[in-house]
């Protein structure tokens, strides 16, 4: 029972962070700020949701369930290590491609560009 409550709380807070990332990627003005929403909004929410699943999986304890929880834990570790790396790679590609850095000062500039 306590496992289910922990699982529900973790999954719901993970969904909240997913909402933040999804709204951020629509509203933010340029490629780099969108990259902030994409790179960070995903890491914590994936961690929370997958950890909630792993805790729910350990509800009836057995060796098979322990192995599944271990695999979910490995996926989480991989996501937390791969998220910043792909963020670096993509934002470096944006710099090399010559994306403009949107600044507050030029009010005339199209915020979508």
């Amino acid at each position: 029972m306590i496992n289910e409550i922990i699982c529900i709380v973790m999954v719901l807070s993970g969904l909240l962070f997913f909402v933040g990332g999804a709204i951020g990627i629509i509203r933010f003005p340029d490629f780099y700020t969108r990259m902030h929403a994409a790179g960070k909004g995903d890491t914590m929410s994936v961690f929370l949701i997958l950890m909630g699943m792993a805790i729910y999986q350990l509800n009836d304890f057995s060796l098979a369930n322990l192995l599944v929880a271990g695999k979910i834990f490995f996926i989480t570790i991989f996501i937390m290590w791969a998220g910043p790396t792909s963020t670096h790679a993509l934002i470096k590609a944006g710099i090399d491609e010559g994306q403009k850095v949107w600044t507050r000062k030029d009010e005339k500039g199209d915020p979508e560009a």
Binding site: G21, I25, F31, R34, L90, A93, G94, E97, E112
Partner: peptide, 13 residues
């Protein structure tokens, strides 16, 4: 998405 790399980021998400 105005540029190709925006689309790549979205596909990644």
């Amino acid at each position: 998405g105005p540029t190709a790399i925006d689309r790549i980021v979205a596909v990644n998400m």
